[in-house]
Simulated assay, not measured.
Amino acid sequence: MSPHDDQTAQEYWEAHYGERERIWSGRVNAQLPGILAGVAPGRALDLGCGEGGDAVWLAENGWQVTAVDISDTAIGRAAAAADARGVRDRIEFERHDLSDTFPEGTFDLISAQFLHSTVRLERPQILRNAADAVAPGGRLVIVDHAAPPPFSKKVPHDHPFPSPEEVLAELDLPDAQWERARVDVVERDGTDPDGQPFTWRDNVMVLRRRA
């Protein structure tokens, strides 16, 4: 049994964001700029936007963004960041528990960056819903942790971290409609809370819906 089983997902994430005034760095996630290099901007959906680092970066680079999170606190911080950087008019914020509801419409880019949770998250169904909402010619971008950081105290030892091939097998998207533009594991440098270096491993999956 998870230690969070007595909390709803929204309660858990509100408590998480309430721990500190800022949880994340405010910068775009590391893999996204390279993935989108040379891609013409259009309509983007940011799943689990947190405090807005990716949504703001996308808006600054010409995308019209719908940014979604379960936490009102996170959305408030993301909206404040968008205001501060002059792109609030390019981002629409919506609160969703993606296990239950999903934004309407279709998108040229749907980004799921580190969409992990130790509380209820119907991830396979969410990613299938995301695939259904990608416009022809658009991209579904999934970036996952390949494993938990060694210093993590919140991730149960049996929490799953599926490989890229396992994620794609679960999605089971038809080859006639989808192209695997990129599927690999990428290493990047990081530091632990004590400032010591360690290596992150990210699963990167870029799927393009055939036009």
Results as ranks from 00 to 15, higher is better:
residue 148 P to Y: 00
residue 139 R to A: 08
residue 140 L to Q: 11
residue 146 A to D: 14
residue 152 S to W: 00
residue 153 K to P: 00
residue 139 R to E: 15
residue 154 K to I: 12
residue 152 S to F: 08
residue 146 A to G: 13
residue 138 G to F: 14
residue 138 G to K: 03
residue 157 H to Y: 01
residue 149 P to W: 00
residue 160 P to H: 09
residue 152 S to G: 11
residue 130 A to V: 01
residue 160 P to I: 08
residue 148 P to G: 03
residue 131 A to V: 06
residue 132 D to P: 03
residue 154 K to A: 13
residue 157 H to L: 15
residue 137 G to C: 14
residue 146 A to W: 11
residue 130 A to D: 03
residue 152 S to H: 14
residue 133 A to V: 10
residue 158 D to T: 05
residue 140 L to V: 07
residue 137 G to W: 11
residue 135 A to Q: 05
residue 158 D to Q: 15
residue 160 P to K: 11
residue 146 A to T: 13
residue 160 P to M: 07
residue 142 I to V: 14
residue 141 V to A: 02
residue 138 G to Y: 15
residue 131 A to W: 03
residue 139 R to F: 15
residue 141 V to F: 08
residue 156 P to Y: 02
residue 157 H to W: 11
residue 138 G to M: 13
residue 141 V to W: 02
residue 154 K to C: 12
residue 155 V to N: 03
residue 144 D to W: 01
residue 158 D to C: 05
residue 130 A to T: 03
residue 144 D to T: 13
residue 141 V to K: 00
residue 134 V to M: 10
residue 136 P to D: 04
residue 155 V to D: 00
residue 135 A to P: 00
residue 154 K to N: 15
residue 139 R to M: 12
residue 145 H to G: 11
residue 160 P to V: 11
residue 130 A to I: 02
residue 145 H to Y: 06
residue 132 D to W: 03
residue 129 N to G: 00
residue 150 P to Q: 07
residue 139 R to L: 14
residue 129 N to T: 10
residue 149 P to G: 07
residue 132 D to A: 14
residue 144 D to V: 02
residue 127 L to F: 08
residue 154 K to F: 04
residue 147 A to D: 09
residue 154 K to D: 11
residue 134 V to G: 05
residue 128 R to F: 13
residue 136 P to N: 04
residue 135 A to T: 11
residue 156 P to C: 06
residue 157 H to T: 14
residue 147 A to K: 15
residue 149 P to N: 10
residue 131 A to P: 13
residue 140 L to T: 01
residue 148 P to N: 10
residue 130 A to F: 05
residue 131 A to H: 15
residue 160 P to N: 05
residue 132 D to C: 08
residue 136 P to M: 14
residue 144 D to F: 02
residue 145 H to D: 02
residue 132 D to G: 10
residue 133 A to W: 06
residue 146 A to F: 03
residue 131 A to Q: 10
residue 152 S to C: 12
residue 154 K to R: 14
residue 126 I to N: 07
residue 127 L to P: 07
residue 127 L to A: 07
residue 142 I to N: 01
residue 134 V to F: 13
residue 141 V to Q: 06
residue 136 P to K: 06
residue 130 A to S: 07
residue 127 L to M: 00
residue 155 V to A: 02
residue 143 V to A: 08
residue 146 A to Y: 02
residue 135 A to R: 09
residue 136 P to T: 01
residue 159 H to S: 09
residue 153 K to W: 10
residue 158 D to R: 12
residue 148 P to I: 01
residue 146 A to L: 10
residue 157 H to C: 08
residue 137 G to P: 04
residue 128 R to D: 00
residue 146 A to E: 09
residue 148 P to S: 08
residue 135 A to I: 05
residue 137 G to R: 12
residue 147 A to Y: 06
residue 136 P to Y: 13
residue 137 G to Y: 08
residue 136 P to Q: 10
residue 128 R to M: 02
residue 156 P to S: 09
residue 131 A to Y: 09
residue 149 P to T: 13
residue 145 H to E: 01
residue 131 A to S: 05
residue 127 L to H: 05
residue 129 N to Q: 15
residue 149 P to Y: 01
residue 137 G to F: 14
residue 151 F to Y: 14
residue 139 R to I: 00
residue 137 G to Q: 12
residue 147 A to R: 14
residue 140 L to E: 03
residue 127 L to R: 00
residue 126 I to T: 04
residue 142 I to G: 11
residue 127 L to G: 00
residue 157 H to A: 13
